Simulated scan of single mutants.
Amino acid sequence: MNRLPVIPTLLVALAVATMIGLGIWQLQRKEQKDALLSRYESAVGLPAVIWPTDPDPAALPLFRRSSLLCARVVKIETVSGSNAAGKAGFAHIASCRTSEVEGPDAKVAFGWSERPQSPSWGGGPVEGIVAPHGTQHIKLVSTDAVDGLEILAEPSPRQIPNNHLLYAIQWFIFAAAATIIYLLALRKRTKAS
């Protein structure tokens, strides 16, 4: 009579339980992301907000209209982006001081071009839509054209992916594969005995 190897069985059982737990966690994350995206979708038609100088990551006014004064352009970076017609190209984003003195920085996506040219923009009043932006959390995407540049695509909650269901399925497949491989290994071991 062959005995079940205790330590390998415990290790595989622990790994499979962890993968199933991760799959369940991803399903919970999917529900949270659905609620967040629904909140963002409902924010689209709300009135404009005052530009937050110190945005709270837990309560960002994403996809709301806002405005700010870009008093001084500190630097301009160029990243990939789309114009209002959906054509791929380059978005130009300025780091702005919001006052002449050392006021807080604000990111302003001020225009689109087909080539990664280095546009010159001196700042000024900007109206637009609040969109997500990396470590600074938010940027203002201008809804007006700047000299020589086209208007960027309007930010939309539909651009934010919700892949948590796929991640959950992936973890469940890993758990099933690990179980099947281990059972096949046990079967081979039993036949060899």
Rank of each mutant, 00 (worst) to 15 (best):
N2R: 15
R3I: 08
P5R: 11
I7K: 11
P8D: 07
P8I: 05
T9F: 10
V12C: 12
V12T: 10
L14T: 14
A15G: 11
A15R: 00
A17P: 00
M19S: 11
L22Y: 07
G23I: 02
I24N: 09
W25R: 09
W25F: 11
Q26M: 01
Q26A: 04
L27S: 08
Q28G: 08
K30E: 13
Q32S: 10
S38T: 10
R39Y: 02
E41S: 14
A43Q: 14
V44T: 11
G45H: 12
L46N: 07
W51M: 00
P52T: 03
D54M: 08
P55Q: 04
D56F: 05
A58C: 05
P61Y: 08
P61I: 07
P61L: 10
F63I: 10
R64G: 07
R65S: 14
S66A: 13
S67R: 15
C70N: 01
V73F: 08
V73Y: 10
V74G: 05
K75G: 05
I76Y: 04
V79G: 01
S80F: 15
G81V: 01
S82H: 14
K87E: 15
K87F: 08
K87I: 13
A88C: 00
A88K: 13
F90T: 03
A91P: 10
H92M: 07
I93M: 03
I93L: 11
A94K: 05
C96P: 04
C96E: 05
R97L: 14
R97D: 12
V101E: 12
V101I: 12
F110W: 10
G111R: 09
G111P: 03
G111C: 09
G111T: 06
S113D: 07
E114I: 01
Q117E: 14
Q117I: 15
S118V: 13
P119N: 11
P119F: 07
P119Q: 11
G123D: 10
G124H: 10
V126D: 04
G128L: 09
G128R: 04
V130D: 02
A131R: 08
H133L: 12
H133T: 02
T135L: 15
H137I: 08
K139Y: 01
A145S: 12
A145I: 02
D147Y: 01
L149E: 00
E150S: 12
L152C: 02
A153M: 11
Q159E: 13
I160W: 00
P161F: 00
Y167N: 01
Y167V: 00
I169N: 00
I173Y: 06
I173L: 14
I173P: 04
F174D: 06
A175S: 12
A175K: 04
A176C: 08
A177Y: 09
A177I: 13
A178D: 03
T179Q: 08
I181G: 10
L184H: 12
A185R: 14
A185F: 15
L186N: 02
L186W: 10
R187M: 10
K188L: 09
K188M: 09
R189S: 13
R189P: 02
T190S: 10
T190N: 09
T190H: 15
